[in-house]
Nucleic acid binder design. Structure first.
Lengths: 342, 342
DNA sequence: GTTAGCACTCGTGATATTAGAGTGCTAAAA
DNA sequence: TTTTAGCACTCTAATATCACGAGTGCTAAC
């Protein structure tokens, strides 16, 4: 069990290490806490804390840095989410308070705002697309050459794609196809829709609108795209600030990974409702063992859950980040509730 | 005037420097050309070339690297666009040959392909939006809560935006507003449209569809967005490969710049029809004085011109890059011609 | 005009040197 | 028993020193 003084020392050490980035020695701690003891005493305590595995040295005569266990303990027991400033509150309200138009916009703007507020990298994941149900399908003839297909889901996403109007198609064919889709596909999950598109629908099309097969392929691709879950990421360049000595090769793989929806979904826990913090190796990803990942979820009314994640250095300003995330997520859930109520 | 041997030496030096990245000495040139002369002779020639300003030393006893003037001369007189491989040809055809759906897609895929083929950074700019004319406007009610606004231009761009349906609006209001827009705005340039939106239209709306003013603001924002010219950029991460020792601060500003449409448009010459190569300081941009920028244009049928640019190191593989760009641009122009003909 | 030969230059990478921050340990003080 | 002053020790980071080699320019002979 840790003594009170050890707690103060561990807390100070992590705070100091986070703000300076350097290993922290006994004198520094003495000068930055109100502990009434000499540096020698603090050295003894540090040695004790090291034996217990909360801190470690970078070399035999260096100051200490927190170990993974130290961070873990800090986050679980010492760290307090920090109150956010009025400024921060204002920007959150500015983004989430105004009239929201579309799910994708909200997610995009949220990622942007969070990366700005934290100065880390922010990732916002939409609810898993697998469970989305098709609520509407429309084909709209734009001009002689172009048709727009629009699909809507119960998760609030609206997607569209424009494609060339095949030559042998006229308006009435569009109506026929639209009707086929609305009769047979609306209400099903997108996964089911794609399956049906491959099995049943080609038959129907051939029967009722035989000249629409060409167009059918384009429509199929819209649906395939729509089953891919959406991710929004912002502040990728901040990695350059908080991870200065990363080599270009690693950086390149990292950035490639961060652009890959699948990678992000498997990285980020979408189940746990509270805050999940994974530090270094805990993330279990070879590119991220020098990073920390804070994950939390938000509710899309009662249609499902999305996730928010902040990627930063292990020596992250956890207190501030938690504070921001907490306020943000509550406001986001509220905003989405209203969005679906209206 | 340069002697024949000097030309061979300059050419070899630039090729060797490009492929190795190192300064090139007299022996290296001797071993990599079929010049029948000793290294001493070549040293004399190098010394001569240096006096004329085509090459320079990195320090008093180093090998030579091309100077800006050397590159200039090479590009203007020595470099030959290289034949592209069958593989390259195939990938270009795969992207540009298949049925193309939308301008934005073409541009996006073009950037992607070019960055892959060259291993540099590819930028594709659409025709300047200022000259685009509105050819179609549609309002589509998606469901009780959402309306989609769609605008089309004569440059082939189709943009849309979804926004909340104001509560006091019904289908017939949508029709009214659509009619107002079609009567008064179609045929005008987007710039004019935005002007009119601020002057004339509010009056009309107030007169014929007074409860639509709220919606009007949303529509206005769609148009404002549409006047922003489109850029597509790909292979940004390749900068990490060809510019290894760039510091993070510069890199961050550079990446920020490359995401800014305005910056790119002012950087890239959209007027000169041939190939324009700017090297180092010639680019006249403090972030790019260690880069080369190859620019060329493509015709969007007879609706205007867009631009393609490749950003790479000054020691670029000019021959290959020119070869690829030349083939690509011809095929692109052809593809776009068909796109508008059909 | 060409070339062999040689002294000279300078960057690169390896090896010493040094200063400073921090440690652990000991023995005395509290 | 806990705290603390004191000191020897360790290791890093920065700087200086050195040797090597690639490359040069110059000279004198071919």
């Amino acid at each position: 069990m840790l003594t009170k003084r050890q707690l103060i020392i561990l807390d100070a050490l992590i705070r100091l290490n986070t703000s300076t980035g350097n290993p922290i020695g006994s004198k520094t701690i003495m000068n930055n806490t109100d502990i009434k003891a000499s540096s020698a005493t603090i050295r003894n305590e540090l040695s004790e804390l090291e034996k217990m595995g909360f801190i470690k040295k970078t070399h035999s005569s260096s100051g200490r840095i927190p170990s993974l266990k130290g961070y873990r303990f800090y986050i679980d027991h010492l760290m307090k989410p920090q109150e956010v400033t009025q400024d921060t509150l204002n920007s959150i309200n500015a983004v989430l308070g105004t009239h929201v138009q579309q799910m994708d916009d909200i997610m995009h703007q949220s990622a942007q705002l969070l990366s700005e507020l934290t100065q880390y990298t922010a990732i916002v994941l939409g609810p898993k697309a697998e469970t989305s149900r098709l609520t509407g399908f429309k084909l709209l003839s734009l001009n002689a050459n172009h048709v727009m297909a629009i699909i809507q889901t119960d998760k609030g996403t609206i997607e569209n794609k424009v494609f060339r109007m095949p030559k042998n198609i006229n308006e009435s064919d569009l109506v026929k196809v639209t009707n086929i889709f609305n009769q047979h596909l609306v209400g099903h999950t997108l996964i089911e829709v794609v399956q049906k598109l491959q099995r049943d629908i080609p038959l129907l099309i051939r029967k009722y609108a035989s000249n629409a097969t060409e167009m059918f392929l384009s429509i199929e691709s819209v649906f395939k795209e729509s089953t891919e879950s959406r991710h929004h990421i912002s502040g990728k360049l901040n990695i350059l600030d908080f991870s200065e000595n990363i080599d270009t090769k690693k950086l390149k793989s990292l950035y490639t990974m961060l652009d890959n929806s699948g990678d992000l979904y498997s990285l980020i826990d979408q189940i746990n409702d509270g805050f999940v913090v994974k530090i270094g190796d805990e993330i279990n990803h070879n590119l991220l063992n020098e990073f920390s990942l804070i994950t939390t979820t938000y509710s899309v009314s009662n249609y499902g859950k999305g996730a928010i994640a902040i990627l930063g250095p292990t020596s992250m300003a956890y207190g501030e980040t938690f504070g921001v995330l907490d306020v943000f997520r509550k406001q986001l859930t509220r905003t989405l509730l209203e969005y679906y109520l209206e």
